[in-house]
Design a protein around this nucleic acid. Structure first.
Lengths: 107, 107
DNA sequence: CAGATGTGCAACTATAGTATTGCACTTCAG
DNA sequence: CTGAAGTGCAATACTATAGTTGCACATCTG
């Protein structure tokens, strides 16, 4: 499960409120760090750092347009993570059900 | 989207490697904090704190059995989160596609 | 009862993460 | 060229989090 073993960094990226705000905003439309800084109550540099984290997690992609660096949210990556989670969640439920069956059979 | 607005805390809970280890371990079979402390290279108290975070995020449920407090991973909660993510990811992709169509049509 | 095991609370340390500010460099417009 | 807007790097301050240890209390077993 190479994908599974590297899930924690993605969750760490998603686990900050400010970062989540940025990501949701980028999901509506791509934007530069300076543009985001005008809309959100934090400095441009703080936003840049958040974007680096999101980028490292594969949740954001950047493209240089003139002097601007435009960032966009990658919904596909989010969907991939979602599928991993779904699968893991199911396996836990299945194991729990099996344990319960054994307990009922033995008790 | 009441569920969506509260996603960040869940990811914050999932975003720590140690906490993820604990959760995966509980997914295999329920266990007490002391039992987990024997298997993992951290103290019982550290595990207890992690369990509190996981519990607050709705990812773990606890039940007292004798003098033990047994914890189990809630796969259903994980699946719920997965479905939210999947939906959000799709909407981002859709919006991006719409923006691209507009750009092509105008340019 | 005595001992082993399990839990809960509290104080404390250390490290990682968030956010700020300041400055230098680049690039587009007048 | 000049100014405005965008970016990048670096130093710093602050806060949150992870982890530890020590002790008191509860509970099962012999």
């Amino acid at each position: 499960m190479t994908a599974t073993t590297q899930l924690a960094p993605v969750f760490a990226a998603l686990g900050d409120d400010t970062r989540w705000s940025i990501l949701v905003r980028l999901g509506e439309a791509p934007a530069s760090a300076s543009a985001l800084a005008r809309e959100l109550p934090i400095s441009r540099q703080a936003i840049v750092k958040h974007l680096e984290v999101l980028s490292a997690a594969g949740l954001v992609e950047s493209e240089k347009v003139g002097r601007e660096l435009v960032h966009r949210a990658l919904g596909g990556r989010l969907s991939d993570v979602a599928r991993d989670l779904e699968r893991i969640g199911r396996s836990w439920e299945a194991r729990l059900a099996r344990i319960k069956r054994l307990a009922e059979g033995a008790g």
